[in-house]
Nucleic acid binder design. Structure first.
Lengths: 198, 198
DNA sequence: ATGGTGTGACGACACCCGTCGTCAATCAGG
DNA sequence: CCTGATTGACGACGGGTGTCGTCACACCAT
């Protein structure tokens, strides 16, 4: 029987503190960007003394990569569920775009964490790079081209297009409805899937 | 007759110091990113005392926006020259892509300064935003669609695609030759210019 | 009550930053 | 030589950072 303090076990308290730090990390990274995430700023916002930061994380790098990983896993899970359906490619693409957008609109901070900050922050860009390469390879493998260079160019272009569309839409500077955006993305993906046939 | 010191006029020395600061700003912003650009780091690298920083710039914001503006002006100039030729659209697109890539490959730091850092740095993003909106409007006005929403979606997608393609190619992670990349971009632009006709 | 554990606050240390005033040395023109 | 301009170095001030040890107090189980 674990000993309690304040009515909870040490393991529970530790988990709770870790959760709090991740939440604050998400808030700072997703609203102000990577420079705003420091050990002290996070602990200040979390109302925890910085000893507890080191209880869960070796340093800021570990925190921001953990925050990124949480969001990436959310997105991946949603995508996996969406494309698990048995449907023709256009419906799959629509389901995928819808699912991804759903994850982003459920919490707009996620767009910045998943799509923007990794473009310039050295820690995130090194960490996220593999995930992004994976996404590209996934997109690329769906393309009906036998030319690997062309496949990668297309996948990169698509990822770039989607990144810009999503982030711009999320920040309110794209005057499109969600349905219009979804339709456009689906058509764009479909167009790429058939472009080599022309 | 302006008084001289060390064989040069005050105006010349001031101009030289400003040039040096801009060069160092370009180096730091283009290789390490915005966080590495501080008044002290710039002056250290420029081997100037920080009094001289304030001779030309009110603060770091003014320096990084000046650095961005220099690169943007280079790109704009190259683009204007490239599309001044009398040629059919595919040749215009090719000339534009070639010119833009030329500016970037002449100095790879420019890709980061022009395309990446403004995505996340608040100062640059606010400052570059208008230039980017202009680029988008320009691309959009070349599209044969009467639907303004669709035009903007397309322009945004294209800008995103180009951004990713260029930055990924510049960092060496796209295994394509420059000719392959150029061909792809030209085809992509051409495809978008005709996509609405389908 | 006792001894051990957990917590919050804080100080230490060494570093960084932005901004600017001061001082000593050098340069320049009359 | 004299006086004023220019330069380089540096310190001041007030803020921030990462990391971690210490202390006083509160909590807990026995």
């Amino acid at each position: 029987m674990a000993r309690t303090y304040g009515g909870t076990t040490m393991a529970d308290r530790k988990a709770h503190r870790r959760r709090t730090l991740l939440d604050v990390g998400t808030e700072l990274l997703g609203t102000k960007g990577t420079a705003a995430v420091t050990v002290r700023s996070v602990c200040r916002a979390a109302k925890l003394t910085d000893r507890y930061f080191y209880e869960s994380f070796a340093g800021r790098e570990e925190l921001i990569t953990a925050v990124f990983d949480e969001v990436a896993e959310l997105a991946a899970t949603a995508l996996r569920a969406a494309v698990a359906i048995q449907a023709p490619p256009p419906d799959l693409a629509r389901a995928a775009v819808d699912a991804f957008l759903g994850v982003l609109t459920d919490d707009p901070r996620r767009g910045r964490i998943l799509l923007l900050e990794p473009l310039t922050d050295p820690v995130l860009s090194a960490h996220a790079g593999d995930a992004m390469r994976l996404f590209e390879a996934l997109i690329g493998s769906q393309l009906p081209t036998t030319d690997p260079v062309r496949a990668q160019l297309t996948a990169t272009a698509l990822l770039g297009a989607l990144t810009h569309l999503f982030t711009r839409w999320l920040d309110g500077s794209l005057p499109a409805t969600r349905a219009q955006l979804t339709d456009f993305c689906v058509a764009m993906l479909a167009n790429s899937a058939t472009a080599d046939r022309s």
